[in-house]
């Protein structure tokens, strides 16, 4: 596990013992970050002395979730890691074609770049999540299933058309179940309660100019 806290152990150790003052450490941190930005600007520049090892501390659980139809039409996309639009489109295209080409006998998992892709088909819709190597793919299937159950409760036997015409509601539901790629509510009841309360709030907030989207 790369950890930021000790990018260069000896450097850090020495600083601590010789200069216990917080101020010094912060200034060094700042220098460090400037350096880091420097190398972000010019990717080919090599920085040295091992000082920059282990900066990749990002551990976002679920990287993204995609919903798409059997015809390959994207129905929902939720990204928990920043990518330029072009990259997102490319990833989406690649995954959709890969998954649609898989045979029903195959498992619901595939390795793609350094991610694990977990997908499951519900009627005409594919639900597809990208997770980290260390993550539990069986549990990811459960998360997908939980999401489907929630949609089902909310729309009343949900179908693809519900999600097409109420895509924003599907997003709202996902945001109550997961934040930043992490499950944040494990009770169906609580999720549905929060959604209902917000829907109500929305109606109130229409006020006199009541209109729908």
């Amino acid at each position: 596990m790369p950890s930021y806290a000790s990018p260069s152990p000896d450097l850090e150790g020495e600083t601590k013992s010789q200069h216990p003052k917080q101020a010094f450490r912060t200034s060094e941190r700042a220098a460090f970050l400037i350096l880091r930005r420097l190398c972000a600007d010019e990717p080919a520049i090599v920085l040295t002395s091992g000082a920059l090892d282990g900066l990749q501390g990002l551990e976002i659980k679920m990287q993204f979730m995609l919903l798409f139809s059997r015809q390959g039409k994207l129905r929902l996309q939720k990204w928990y890691e920043a990518h330029p639009d072009k990259v997102k489109k490319k990833i989406t295209r690649e995954l959709i074609s890969t998954i649609l080409a898989r045979k029903p006998k195959m498992s619901s998992f595939l390795e793609w770049k350094d991610l694990k892709i977990v997908y499951k088909r519900y009627a005409s819709l594919y639900f597809c999540c990208a997770i980290e190597q260390e993550d539990n793919e069986l549990l990811t299937l459960e998360i997908i299933h939980r999401y489907v159950e929630l949609l089902d409760k909310y729309f009343g036997s949900v179908c693809e058309l519900d999600i097409i015409f109420n895509f924003e509601k599907a997003y709202f539901m996902l945001d109550e179940l997961m934040v930043g790629g992490e499950v944040c509510e494990t009770s169906k009841k609580n999720v549905l309660k929060a959604i209902a309360a917000q829907d109500l709030l929305q109606e109130v907030s229409y006020g006199e100019t009541a209109y729908e989207l």
């Binding site: 950890s3 806290a5 501390g57 934040v179 944040c184 509510e185 494990t186």
Partner: peptide
């Protein structure tokens, strides 16, 4: 509350991963 528990555990997991002190 399970929602708070699960996110709390996740947060601690990440802290432990990132720093030996934690």
């Amino acid at each position: 509350n399970h929602g708070v528990l699960i996110t709390g555990v996740t947060l601690i997991t990440e802290m432990c991963r990132q720093s030996p002190d934690m």
